[in-house]
Amino acid sequence: MFNQYVKELKSSFHNMTAALYISLILVFTGIFTTVYNLMGRYPTFEYALFQTILIFLIAVPVLTMRSFADEKALKTDTLLYSLPVGMTKIVMGKFLALVSINAISVLIVSLYPIVFSFYGKINFLMTYSNILAYFLLGCALISIGMFISSLTESVVLSAVSTLGALLLVYFVDVIALLIPGDPWMSLICFIVVALALGALVYVYMKSIIIASSVGGVLAVGAVVFYVLKKDLFAGLFPSMLEKLDIFGILNNFLMGIFDLPAIVYLVSVTVLFVFMTVRSMEKKRWS
């Protein structure tokens, strides 16, 4: 794993993606910090920092686009499959290398509050818990990008799909507003999701029986619940969608609340996508 980590870290710097990622993050945090904190005399660094999370939408795809798509395009993935190293270790090595690059930019950014403290009073605990949340958000987005990269053989497609997926997550709260709060509307949405999951299972397992039973059971389950507890369904789907908004989940931190569930949520998302990357790479063996 360490071997893979070192190799990945080196190659990220060789092919400029790491440099591009770090410079994108630093340039924009620099601009926002100058405008908010230095020129606007705003005493909290985290407001400036959280203005820049939009940059993740561009920077993360740049960082993760090559991770597995490039290996597939250049057929170097056969080496990964033939070496006596488990796929989990390879994925972890790659992921930790990307996380380290994220950590480099976060470490540089976390020097800013120290500089500010020479000129005024800084609530370090609050600022650094925000920076921690910012770092974990980056890791979660990187895991999503890495997973998407493992699905495709094209670096460009990997970058564009990651951008699309992150945009969707970024605006999921707006999309939630589109859906009316009526109970039946939620039911329809759940049925659509159930059928979509069934379709996904079909793509993954190529078995019409398993796919239709998964989709069917979920859809029927939703209908049964709807009949039993109709009131629960009012606005249920939009509120669940809002929960997917991993950008907005950090709002509590900005208000000075150390939101442990949010931390757990981000870490879970990260673990889930790293795991799915391992599965997606293993699956290629069985294609």
């Binding site: 190799k7 080196k10 092919n15 170097t76 033939s82």
Partner: peptide, 17 residues
């Protein structure tokens, strides 16, 4: 796999190493 060395059809080389 520890007993096997494999050269696939297309050598799996990393160009920047």
């Amino acid at each position: 796999k520890s007993f096997i060395g494999y050269l696939p059809e297309q050598p799996p080389l990393y160009a920047d190493m």
